[in-house]
Nucleic acid binder design. Structure first.
Length: 151
DNA sequence: GCCAACGTTGGC
DNA sequence: GCCAACGTTGGC
């Protein structure tokens, strides 16, 4: 099993929104970055655990845990002209963007902040701390366990 | 709202 | 296929 971290802006879609979704599950639509897409399309397996990270907000950091409910399939919003995620260069025959379905697992009692990550000797090496612009990043088992222990 | 970092585009 | 210009992300 693999571990991941996915970013979301809580004003748009928060860990609470995921919890309140039908069957506590939601499609992770709108990722338009190739590296992030590749992780979702090629490497995410059903049951993989995902840290849900809140960005561009008051309390930046990891807010909860989710899991992969459904492995990758084409993101339908790329074909919808009215969607902000519409991509005119993508076709149904050759979809460019893929996504997974994500299921709520738990909300943490507190936010594990980006600052805490940066101050930790091991966690400061995490993708999210260093490569701040990638919205889907792999997390090692060790990193996962360190974070859980501190919550 | 600023601005650094960095991913993408497109001309050559 | 290089790289400058441009656009977006995201912490602060």
């Amino acid at each position: 099993m693999n571990y991941w971290l996915m970013k979301t802006e809580p004003d748009t879609f928060s860990i609470d929104d995921l919890n309140n979704s039908p069957k506590k599950t939601a499609p992770w639509e709108g990722v338009r970055n190739y590296q992030a897409r590749n992780y979702m399309r090629d490497e995410m397996k059903k049951g993989d655990l995902i840290f849900i990270y809140h960005s561009s907000c008051k309390e930046v950091g990891i807010a909860g845990l989710a899991s992969v409910a459904k492995t990758s399939y084409p993101d339908p919003t790329q074909f919808q002209k009215e969607s902000e995620y519409y991509d005119p260069k993508s076709t149904e025959d050759l979809p460019r963007w893929f996504m997974v379905d994500v299921k709520f697992e738990k909300k943490f009692d507190r936010i594990f902040s980006l600052q805490e990550m940066k101050e930790h000797p091991i966690l400061k090496e995490m993708f999210v701390a260093k490569r701040s612009r990638l919205s889907v990043t792999p997390v090692s088992k060790k990193e996962y366990e360190i974070i859980l222990k501190q919550l």
